[in-house]
Design a protein around this nucleic acid. Structure first.
Lengths: 231, 231
DNA sequence: AATCTGTTGCGACAAAAGTCCCTGACAAAA
DNA sequence: TTTTGTCAGGGACTTTTGTCGCAACAGATT
């Protein structure tokens, strides 16, 4: 068994909805895996291109995004180790629904559509795992639509801060502290950098957050949650 | 074989991604189907409630929507005969991700989550059909996020008009002419009625559309598409 | 005809979001 | 050290979007 197959198995087990797959299915997947390295900022694939395959993040961070004709960016997902992406194109055979690029130097592994398809048809457990992953993706997207349509930038920002605090407190994996720039927050919330600056100032003036030299600290979680829900 | 099972079979065959399922799977589904009638405006289920089951529209129209605390509505989907909804909750077992209500008097059929689950595990073709439906839903949601984040109301409206014109020209099913009110357009595009009025006036002044007593007629499809893409 | 009800038209105004621009802080690279 | 680039802070202004209010109109019902 090749070295890469061994490490691939470990990686596959890190994917939550793959964790409970039977050994032989994981092994079959592991054999089909191809590792690739990407430099910070490098494009992984572009939307509308034919399906680039199924990806798992082994190391580093990746963003999935859309660009407007005017050059504004909307980040759809921000992914770290153990996360997967491009399921949609792999599963329906259409083009990539959005573009992907590496936010940091990153190692990904990629599985071709046909391999996934054959394995999924042969192993209902895998099909079911993929279904769960798609359902989760759909829930995430619904939440995004709700945010964009029904909430102000300030409320969205409050939600983002709470979510990031959550992630950080779990402190599970090898991830580093990960400070987000205002520009990235803007791209994730569908607005511009300046709006983030203003909203942060607002929240700080109201005493909901404070700054510890370029680090944001939540000072009043309860009131921050109120802002996140209404407004 | 009961009468309702016969008509259920016909209905299932109208669902695009069920059409190619083998006969015995369709039959099994048909047996599990329960028909229900809803009056115009009636709530079918609410978000956050435990999974209400899998639904197929037999007749009438249905909307899937979110409400903001302030009472603004965002329509996620507008469904007619042959369309299905609430797959997400059925497939991941979570609560309904959004609310549903009947836009007209409607007949729906409903299948309980457990039935779908068992059948999908036993029949990979069904699992694959569900995967396709989820993937399509995800693509639709990605397009919505893109619209809300990256396009002006005017551009979104242009897209809606083009899409509706498309649907209408296909004129396939028994659907009637279906005029949409400005209020509904607003809810679908994530804005308010007045904005739709203004945008329509704009488009009319530029000569891209005209009005034939409360009916919107596309006067210049090409330029309308330009507005839809940029802006 | 009279009266609902749901719809549209439109103007005035307010708030939210986006654009432009310039500053200084800081860190990495030369 | 200088240079370069990224990032944050913030002011002034424009555009877009949302709110309020009210009149008008069409279709259905009585």
């Amino acid at each position: 068994m090749a070295d890469s197959t061994v490490s691939a198995l470990g990686l596959l087990r890190q994917v939550p909805y793959f964790a409970s797959l039977p050994e032989h299915v994981l092994a079959a997947l592991a054999q089909a895996v191809r590792f690739r390295r990407y430099a910070r900022g490098q494009v992984i694939f572009l939307e509308r291109e034919p399906c680039a395959g199924f990806f798992i993040v082994a190391a580093g961070e990746v963003k999935i995004f859309k660009l407007s004709p005017q050059g504004r960016e909307q980040i759809l997902q921000h992914l770290g180790p153990g996360h997967t992406f491009n399921e949609v194109a792999v599963l329906d055979g259409g083009p990539n629904p959005a573009s992907a690029s590496a936010l940091t130097d990153a190692t990904l592994c990629c599985i071709r559509r046909e391999v996934i398809r054959q394995l999924a048809l042969a192993h209902p457990e895998l099909a079911w795992a993929l279904i769960e992953s798609l359902a989760q993706r759909a829930r995430h997207l619904v939440a995004m639509v709700e945010d964009l349509s029904l909430r102000s930038v300030k409320a969205r920002l409050a939600r983002l801060l709470l979510a990031e605090a959550e992630r950080a407190s779990q402190a599970d994996t090898l991830e580093r502290s990960h400070l987000i720039s205002q520009a990235e927050m803007a791209a994730r919330l569908g607005t511009v950098r300046e709006m983030i600056g203003r909203a942060l100032r607002d929240l700080a003036e109201e005493g909901l957050i404070t700054f510890d030299r370029h680090r944001i600290v939540i000072a009043d979680r309860n009131r921050l949650q109120e802002v996140a829900e209404l407004g």
